[in-house]
Design a protein around this nucleic acid. Structure first.
Lengths: 279, 279
DNA sequence: TTGCGTGTGAAAAACCGGTGAACACGCCTT
DNA sequence: AAGGCGTGTTCACCGGTTTTTCACACGCAA
């Protein structure tokens, strides 16, 4: 939840070298990208820097500080702006905030607090930022798209429900790792699993069904008896695209549980699941 | 831009009656809706109040102030949280900000500054959504003009209300991407969605009605059951198109991220059955 | 073989979203 | 001041979807 704090891009406009030294030291420790700018920075340049936040000492900007503040705030929406100054009146602070500043810090101030305030300013914005956090992840034939709450095989939508997707996502997050039932339940359902609850099993089955229906030549979810499940794509040996298994005349009982066998070879079970137009 | 700034809904948790009196006086002058709460407010109630911001005096909350702060910040995303306290250390302020507070104000403080800081916090969240993408964007037959708060089909005005337009704009900002209900509500309405609120649905319906009324051969908004909605223009099959690809089986729109699944028609993947091709 | 954990299908229950309409509120006109 | 109008909110109903539950078959380990 709080992982987005790292790697903030911050620019500082200030002339107080002592303050700058201490602050930059802290910023390095925090791992932020930062640079010091002079007052005459064109707004276009600020935009192109792709900053998360800007820290301005108004006294370093000169008489047209207010104008500068207003201009930047208007021209670079999405940029967090924090103003700091040695001493200031209530009226000045109010004016600064109204002109577009997100926060006003009075010097002397502790670098740690500056950092925390920048974080607080940026935090809000991050939430609303374009969701680039999760780009499609590919496991074997399976593509998991967090922005769609869906999984795809090729261009085919697997058609997972919300819970199914969350379950898949949870397991696929740690491929090759066994996840205990209790943990699965806790993370996907959000609360502790009641004794004897079979929900996880049922959803695993549904997941397997849909995955197998769309990507029959891969086996994605493995059972660990008495423990839980593991996501680990592995090719189904036997009938690949090449040699479709001969034995299919065998009329098997309705029970066709085992995932591995071809049974429904690729052409037998056309992966499509075209959503029926329910209108 | 600033028309939303007025009429902020603010709740205050404090016991300092002198401060409260002065502050409430100011809030009335500013025309804000406000109320004073006691410390034991369940987060559910906070949500249903449709607040924009919350002002907490940590010393009024008692020992579990930190916990309360963390809980509220976690449970009511989109709520601006400002903490104030008589005296505090840097470490305390840093802690508060890290736990989710958006600002920390030290008493004594001028009511006007409090108001300005609340405004800054609320604005910060509001602005993040706006993206300031002024120029007309064309999706299929639909032209979205942010500068007019309107959408057009050809030269015809669709006649959207403010909310309808904001909703459309939000969705159309990220075509092909599923946006969760909660997120929609928070960005368009400005505060957290209360459980069971149907406003989003109602406005989606109104939007669909108007869009369909003006551009019947395209379908713009898709439902993702249990998640939210997705803007992704696609031709209504069975209807005649002008130039754009009328087929849906093969040529998919340039967009590589949209989902074939539409509406709530995600049916069970018929694993052992031959899915019916409905094309 | 027994005992417990898991796979499976189907039914029941809970949930969700579409819809129409009543209601509330501010604004403008009369 | 009363009434009409445009907007936005809330409510109840309905049908479809999803989730949970249940009973039983099956499989793994002791």
């Amino acid at each position: 939840m709080t992982e987005q704090a790292r790697s903030i891009r911050l620019a500082v406009i200030d002339t107080d070298s002592a303050f700058l030294t201490v602050l930059e030291n802290r910023l390095d420790t925090a791992g932020w990208q930062h640079r010091v700018l002079s007052e005459g920075v064109p707004t276009e340049e600020l935009v192109s820097m792709k900053l998360n936040a800007l820290l301005i000492d108004l006294s370093a900007v000169g008489a047209d500080g207010w104008e500068f503040l207003e201009r930047v705030a208007g021209a670079v929406p999405g940029l967090g702006i924090l103003v700091c100054s040695a001493q200031s009146t209530v009226a000045q602070r109010v004016r600064g905030l109204r002109l577009g500043a997100d926060d006003w810090i009075t010097k002397p101030c502790h670098p740690e607090e500056v950092i925390a305030r920048v974080e607080a300013v940026v935090r809000r914005r991050k939430r609303a930022e374009v969701r680039l956090n999760a780009w499609p992840v590919l496991h074997a034939e399976l593509e998991i798209r967090s922005d769609q709450y869906q999984a795809f095989v090729g261009a085919q939508n697997v058609g997972l429900t919300r819970r199914e997707f969350e379950l898949l996502q949870l397991l696929a997050q740690v491929p090759g790792q066994v996840v205990e039932r209790e943990e699965i339940y806790q993370k996907v359902w959000g609360y502790a699993m009641a004794h004897g609850d079979r929900s996880v099993d049922v959803f695993i089955r549904k997941l397997r069904q849909k995955l197998h229906g769309h990507s029959p030549s891969w086996r994605y979810i493995h059972t660990h008896f008495g423990i839980g499940y593991r996501f680990d794509p592995e090719p189904v040996d036997g009938a690949e695209q090449v040699a479709p298994a001969p034995d299919r005349a065998e009329a098997r009982p309705p029970r066709s549980d085992e995932v591995p066998t071809d049974e429904a070879s690729v052409e037998e079970a056309p992966v499509d699941e075209v959503p029926v137009e329910t209108a």
